[in-house]
Every structure is written in C-alpha cells, then in structure tokens.
C-alpha cells in the first residue's frame, strides 16, 4: 500500500509545489490524480518514485520510505514510473533490450529476465517489434514499449504521468485495456478525465499543490462545481449521461 502523510515540497527556494498532501492507497486500488497545469501532479509522482528528495517519514511504499537513501535504491523493485514523454524512457537501441534494461538492473538470473521480457512484450502487443529501434516507433508503440519496460520488472505499484499524451484514439484504447488488466496499485496523473474515469475507481483532485477532493471517480468527476474552478471539465461521457462501462463499451 501507499501512505502519504503531510507531504510538502518546493523546488530549490521557490514556492511550495505540494502543500501538506496526505492520502492512502490500498493494494489493488487504482487512483486518478487530476488537476490543472502546475497543480503538482508530476511532482507528487516524482516524490513517490524517490526521484525528488523528500524528508523521511512522509511517504511509505509498502515497507519502503523514499526519504531514506537505503530504501530509495530498493524502490525500482516495487514501483514503476511511466514518464510523460516515452522518449525520455526508451534509451536502448532495440525494443527487446530496452524492456530487459530494468530486470537486468535488478540482478535477476538470465532465464528469469528472458521470461519476463517475453511476457511483457506479449502483454503489450509488441510481438514482432522486438528488434525495432525504439525511436522509430509510433507514439502508441513507444508508449507500449515504455510500459513493457516497467511491466517486465513486475512492480506492485505503477505510476503513470499523462499516459494518454501523444496517443491517437486506437492507441489510447489499447492503453486503457492494458491498464485495466494490470492487477497492482495504479496512480494515474493527468488531464484526460475520460481515461481516469475508465481506469480508476477513485480520484484525487489536486490544485496549487493541495488536495481539493478525494472521492470515488463517479462522484468527483461529475461535480462540475469542483472541477471547473480548477480549469477542468466533466468528462464527455458523463456529460452525455451515457451508461458506459469502465472499459469504454456502451
């Protein structure tokens, strides 16, 4: 589980980007983190992933504390982060080698690495693209390759920052399916409220670094009075009053 208690963060000596943020996420739960630009969504994910320095005792990821140096090195085994721009994440010259990068870093035996890489490639539908150069893939394929690289590490927690950015409708639909099939904890940050509604049971609304609301997605995402002051809109599907299931089927 994830526990965040009274987390505040500021870059260098700038203004606070996160202000006294507290929430908990249970095992298997999917949570959307929504808010306008500059709300602190990406910063929150980077703090959770141990990329940004946080004081000890503010965050717990299972039994690990990203504020403690020793725990921070163990985080990649338990937590995977998908960045906004897949080009930041795909560094190897072939898709297969990129997917293997994380598992090899964890020091797993070669046979286990190969098995996990094969499974991650199949799960994300990248079969046949193993030897392709990642930077020559389409936006959707790059996103799937980035996901495969994290899936291969079998993390219990998946953090996604604006996962539908640069995706066409088909690639977005594939992404939603992949996310709904993933059994672990998911934290999905972004402005794509339709995607959040289709993948997350619960949503946290963040504005100016503070939590404005934390409620089931059906309730929070239909509250125009909460969303509109933050520059967000009720998802299209909810506005139309369609009776859609979460996988997007009417």
């Amino acid at each position: 589980m994830i526990r965040v208690a009274g987390l505040s963060f500021a870059y260098h000596s700038g203004p606070a980007v996160l202000r006294d943020v507290s929430f908990e996420v249970e095992v298997g739960e999917s949570v959307g983190i929504v808010g306008p630009n500059g709300a602190g969504k990406t910063t929150l994910l980077l703090c959770l992933a141990g990329v940004l320095p946080v004081p000890p005792g503010r965050i717990r990821i299972g039994h690990l504390d990203p504020g403690v140096s020793g725990d921070r090195h163990l985080l990649p085994e338990h937590l995977g982060l998908i960045f906004q721009n897949s080009d930041d994440q795909l560094i190897h010259p072939t898709v297969e080698e990129d997917v293997a990068f994380g598992p090899l870093n964890l020091g797993w035996p070669e046979s286990v690495v190969r098995q996990h890489v094969t499974e991650a490639i199949q799960r994300t539908g990248l079969h046949g693209l193993e030897n392709r150069v990642p930077w020559q893939l389409s936006g959707g394929e790059k996103r799937r390759a980035a996901l495969a690289g994290v899936f291969a590490m079998r993390p219990e927690v998946l953090l996604l920052d604006e996962p539908s950015m640069f995706l066409d409708p088909r690639a977005r639909k594939d992404l939603i399916r992949l996310l709904n099939e993933w059994p672990g904890i998911k934290l999905i940050a972004g402005h794509d409220l339709d995607l959040v509604w289709q993948t997350c049971r619960r949503t946290i609304l963040l504005d100016a670094g503070a939590i404005i609301a934390d409620a089931p997605s059906e309730i929070l995402l239909s509250r125009a009075d909460l969303l509109e002051p933050c520059g967000l809109e009720v998802p299209f599907r909810l506005r139309l009053g369609l009776s859609c299931s979460r996988d997007g089927q009417t």
Binding site: L46, A49, G50, V51, H73, L75, P76, E77, L79, G80, L81, F83, N85, D87, D88, Q89, I91, E96, E97, A100, F101, G102, L104, N105, L106, V113, V117, G149, V150, M153
Partner: peptide
C-alpha cells in the same frame, strides 16, 4: 532538461551506473 529526465527514468528502473548485456 531532457538529460535530467532520462537520468531520472534510468534510476527509476534500477540503474546504478552499471550496464548489463542482454545478448
């Protein structure tokens, strides 16, 4: 800026300064 993001992405995937060969 990109170099910083790439480094962060590598650390998030357990990179500790050592590259390991797959093939």
């Amino acid at each position: 800026d990109r170099a910083k993001r790439v480094a962060a992405a590598m650390r998030c995937r357990g990179f500790d300064g050592q590259f390991h060969d797959y093939h």
